[in-house]
């Protein structure tokens, strides 16, 4: 809502001064595009490549997402065919079918190509590589402040954390820093605290704090380019817990070193989602690297660390 202040005022100003009119647009006035293949894959060093293949939908189409299971998904390295990925249909219908590589796991520094073809669609292809992993050298929670909210119904824990890593200075590097907070539900049995359930909650950052080179990832964490300066990164975030039934567990940090494709896709998508469709502004164009289709095929590598908050 906050980000729409100008939109609201702008729109109302126009409405206030002149007669304006909004009309549904006849779709026939718009260019009618044939559906294209949508290929989604984030692949990481040392893990099988997993790819989903779906059919794009035209604006206004409310049909359910149509995943394709009859695709030929071929993996290449330097024009050398590696393998054809096999389709996997999960038992849980809430998860989409996907294609998986069984013989090859990406190696850092190599560029992979994926080619997907399905009858009735234009074949598509995409390239990406896995950058070398950058290790986390330090992760610590420097300060935690507790703020009761909603009359003490919740405690808001304000964390100040530092994360350090060896950012190679000779190349442009892209990162996705994920922070996940473990929250443990507990009950008191006599003098003992019994953990009944443990959950991992991704830490979401506010897009209002976006700056050039730093964006809140729509699913949690921060996307950024290179480490600003030589000092460790200082990060602030908040987690709400119910003090009567929840305890803080470990705080996990994952540093993903990203291919340029991964960074541009999630940065533009997060900014697009964060800004919402505002007709008075230019929309954020979401980066894609699927030739003749839509979606993203992008590699990354990661390193992990964690720290336990002492209650």
């Amino acid at each position: 809502m906050v980000r729409h202040i100008f939109t609201i005022l702008s729109s109302l100003l126009l409405l206030g001064i002149a007669y304006s009119c909004e009309e549904p647009l006849d779709l026939e006035e718009l260019p009618q595009l044939e559906p294209k293949l949508v290929v989604i894959s984030n692949f990481a060093e040392g893990r099988a490549i997993i790819v989903t293949v779906a059919k794009s939908r035209l604006i206004g189409n409310v049909d359910p997402e149509e995943y394709l299971t009859n695709a030929e998904v071929d993996l290449y390295w330097n024009n050398t065919f590696l393998e054809r990925l096999e389709v996997v249909i999960p038992k849980d219908p809430n998860y989409p079918p996907y294609y998986k590589s069984w013989e090859n796991k990406p190696v850092a520094g190599l560029e992979y190509t994926i080619k997907v073809s399905v009858d009735g669609f234009k074949p598509v292809m995409a390239k990406s590589s896995v950058p070398p992993s950058v290790k986390i050298t330090d992760f610590d929670l420097a300060n935690v402040v507790t703020e009761p909210v909603q009359g003490g119904a919740y405690n808001r824990k304000h964390f100040s954390a530092i994360v350090d890593f060896d950012d190679p200075s000779t190349t442009k590097n892209y990162y996705h820093l994920n922070i996940t907070q473990q929250i443990n539900n507990y009950v008191l049995e006599g003098r003992d605290t019994l953990i009944t359930k443990s959950m991992l909650q991704p830490v979401l950052f506010d897009p209002l704090d976006n700056e050039n080179g730093i964006s809140a990832h729509l699913n949690g964490g921060l996307l950024f380019e290179d480490k600003p300066g030589k000092q460790a990164l200082g990060i602030s975030f908040s987690v709400d817990i119910d003090p009567r039934s929840q305890l803080l567990g470990k705080t996990y940090v994952e540093l993903r070193t990203l291919s340029r494709e991964y960074y541009l896709y999630y940065t533009s998508l997060s900014r697009s989602e964060g800004s919402n469709p505002n007709p008075l502004n230019d929309p954020v164009i979401v980066f894609e690297n699927i030739e003749n289709g839509y979606g993203i095929f992008a590699g990354y590598s990661n390193s992990l660390d964690s720290v336990q908050f002492v209650q």
Binding site: L33, P35, K36, V38, I40, S41, N42, I50, T52, A54, S56, R57, L58, I59, N61, E65, Y95, P96, Y98, P202, L218, N219, G220, L269, S272, E273, P277, P283, V286, Y294, G295
Partner: peptide
Amino acid sequence: STYKLNVPGEYSPPEGVIVP
């Protein structure tokens, strides 16, 4: 066009993300 972003093995909000 639009499509729904669903990355196997990655966290995604329950309602999904519609990508324009």
